[in-house]
Design a protein around this nucleic acid. Sequence first.
DNA 1: CGGGCAATTGATGCCTATCAACGGGTGTGG
DNA 2: CCACACCCGTTGATAGGCATCAATTGCCCG
Lengths: 261, 261
Amino acid sequence: MSTATLEARTAPLHYISPAEFRARPAATLTTLCSSCHLKDLCLPCGMSAPTVERLDGLHFGRRRVKAGQALYRAGEPFQTIYAVRSGTFKSSLTVADGREQVSGFSMAGELMGLDGLAQGRHASTATALEDAEICAIPYDHLMELSAGSSELQRVVAQLMSREIVREHSLMLLLGSMNAEERLASFLLNISQRMKARGWSPSEFHLRMSRAEIGSYLGMKLETVSRTFSAFVQQGLLAVDKRHIRILDLEALTRTFEARLQ
Amino acid sequence: MSTATLEARTAPLHYISPAEFRARPAATLTTLCSSCHLKDLCLPCGMSAPTVERLDGLHFGRRRVKAGQALYRAGEPFQTIYAVRSGTFKSSLTVADGREQVSGFSMAGELMGLDGLAQGRHASTATALEDAEICAIPYDHLMELSAGSSELQRVVAQLMSREIVREHSLMLLLGSMNAEERLASFLLNISQRMKARGWSPSEFHLRMSRAEIGSYLGMKLETVSRTFSAFVQQGLLAVDKRHIRILDLEALTRTFEARLQ
DNA sequence: CGGGCAATTGATGCCTATCAACGGGTGTGG
DNA sequence: CCACACCCGTTGATAGGCATCAATTGCCCG
């Protein structure tokens, strides 16, 4: 881990404030969806070519976010949704005493911030787990544009609905699975998302700590660690810290489905 | 409980199929949002008067749903969202073996079915817990109308975002609260929703079984029952089956906040 | 009156949280 | 340059909370 990374991860919670972050001079780099290598994963996914070209008119600003920095924080005014270009983020909910619950992880091509629309303020905090780059999508502009395009309107609505469905499955997990099922489910999900991005689905590097995985899965970090060890002993995985190799995908899937049949 | 109610609740899962249900002749009764007594809770909430009048043009169909009937089922094509006019619904996710996990309860003025948009098919099943009445809102028509009204567009998007935020808090509950905190949280939530509807916030009748509450809160029905008994012993509640009286709201709130400070 | 379901309560065991100790890696400061 | 602090991850011992199995009551209805 680089010096900058460690500094940021261990700093009092955020390295520079998001307000400060956004106060920077406007990004000089902008992105065109039509020529983006992520267009099959990201906002344009499922759109017709003409509609994607309309998106180009918005010239989404690109920004870098260093590991440990917050992209936005719960309570801040909502104006922008974000698409991950590179790197990994965690979204977390903060409760009164400052403890956090991780509500999701976001990888390249995934959108963040849709939960801010309800109250006009961000409902969660997005933190980079490694140096990352994002597209900033001004929500107002996107709405104006989609007023003139039923297709764009549909896609945006679908994205929000997909977020609801995603949370459904997390509720299933938190409500009715045991530790092994939870971790298996998590690993299979990561594996699929890696595959969709052209990476190996069977060997990857986790960007989050055991504590962050545990928070996401509703268990303690020690239990996460023990469950990893159990999977290794069962011959399902090879684990070296955050480096994971899936040795027996079918058995892992069976573990995950233990409660589903 | 009426004969019809019991019949329906104990029938092999649904009394008449939703397909059959929807194949009925078009409802003769339609509803105007502008003159609806629920307009401050429901879809029109937060809209300007002119926009609400535009909604009137859609003439939402009204339908009755008997206790135990499914309004829609997971996997069915998505065309319509629904607003509860009267009665209570549960939304549930079904896993492979037929077991269900309750993902929410809906009361008068609340919308259901927004999760169906993601895949074009309903992601959950909505079942009436008592005889109920709903407004059927054709999603296509709503989209057409909102293309011409940025205000309507905003409200619909906010409704979806609100659903995401609602699920956030359920994730917090499932991920980090113990049995007493979960049940306290549930009761306080019901209490607030009762109050918003002009009913007593301190004395009400639950429409769902202990098993349904347990499924929603990620615990077993026996634990729900025991936790109710514990609250009675602590003087927080009076409980007679499904009839609940909150005796010490502050203490209940403290229980709920035990993990939040 | 008997069958079936909802709810309650008791006894027991398991899963996971909790507390604790240790090793490895990395940055810091004497 | 090395001792030290700190964080991350792992593993062990123990305790506690909740699931599980089981029995009972009350209620509704056939």
